[in-house]
Computed example of a mutant assay.
Amino acid sequence: MLKKFSQFTFALIGLTVLFSSCKKDYESIQVVDGKKIQDYITANKLTVTEDPLKSGYFYQILTQGTGTANYVTSDTVLYNVSVKGLENGTLYWASPLQANRATLGGYMNGLVASNTVYGAISVPAIRDVVLQLKPGGSARILLPSYLAYGKNGIANIASNENIDLNITTFPEKSQAVLDDRLINEFIKKNSLTMTKDRTRTYFSISAPGTGTDAITLNSTLTINYTGRYLDGTVFDSNVAGTYVTTLSTLIQGWKNVIPGKLTKGGKIRLLIPSDQAYGLAGFGSVPANATLDFDIEIVNVVNN
């Protein structure tokens, strides 16, 4: 009996030693990510600050911004963001150059997965760092995978991918003010002569038209048009004289300016602030908060 007990005891001790040895070889994702981030910081000679709560991320204030006070949770933050793989340098996605993102400072923890629809994850580090900036400031955040897209990854971001995130804020706290600045910079850069409508859309008429039917919101129009972003990228165009629509179904910038200014044969250029175009929601390939540039020709007018 004693002999059997001793054999059992030794076997149990052996298993304990084996499992203990395995446990020592195992490293948590927090440890693994932490080592990779520290190696990255050292290799690139970065001067970064550790999260005060020591949750695992590091950040660097690139530019502090302007003004006398940092953002607070109730401020509207207008910003662009880019997401890269920390080790491989792959740019997974970035805010469109033609537009920007916007949210309240207290809700800056939301990070989408890409420019396509994959939902969003919660990354409180973004909010915590942005609230250390003034408007116009920028920052870099080194995120361990467990504070980013995690073990499952998402879209084209692999499992356990550490993230190098850059965020740049605009000086303005109002989208309307930002749009107006961007439009005026565009006008100056291109030496344009434009008139500002009371609804903040800018326009220039190259031909008022020769028709006799006045255009109203209920008019059925045949239109040639080309729509561009302010960087010159064409996002939509129809110049075959085949696009027929009722003016009331179009974006607000068209509805506000065209009635009373053009007839059949008229030509106009519109620089439309984002809230008079597709606004916060965007539409199709047009991103949220995009300011748009349209050339429009009225081919025909029908009033029923």
Rank of each mutant, 00 (worst) to 15 (best):
I183R: 07
Y26K: 08
R269D: 04
G153S: 09
S274I: 07
I258Q: 02
E27N: 15
L2Y: 14
N156M: 06
F170C: 02
G136M: 07
S74Y: 00
D179Q: 07
V286L: 08
I272A: 02
Y79Q: 04
R140M: 02
I61E: 02
K3H: 05
Q38L: 14
T66L: 03
N100Q: 14
L271Q: 03
T210L: 13
S174P: 11
K4D: 08
V77S: 00
Q132R: 12
N218Q: 10
G67S: 03
V81I: 15
S21F: 15
F58P: 00
A69R: 07
P208Y: 00
S28T: 12
G211Q: 11
R269E: 09
F203A: 08
I41M: 05
L53S: 12
Q60W: 02
G119N: 07
G153P: 07
L143E: 07
N88C: 09
A69W: 00
T9I: 11
I37H: 15
Y92G: 03
G150K: 12
G279K: 15
L270K: 05
I157V: 05
F203S: 05
K261D: 01
T263H: 08
L111R: 10
I29K: 14
K196A: 03
Y92K: 05
P96W: 13
Y149M: 03
K54F: 09
G209R: 10
Q252I: 01
I163Q: 05
T169H: 01
R228W: 12
L178N: 11
G153W: 13
N70I: 00
D231R: 02
V48A: 00
L53P: 09
Y92W: 10
D236E: 15
S285T: 09
F10P: 00
L217P: 04
G209S: 03
L250H: 10
T49M: 02
N184L: 08
R269H: 06
S237P: 11
T246K: 15
T246M: 13
L133H: 01
S145Q: 07
G56D: 03
G227V: 07
R198M: 06
G153E: 10
I215T: 04
L247R: 02
S95K: 14
A207Q: 13
S191P: 04
L15F: 15
I121R: 12
I205Y: 05
I298A: 11
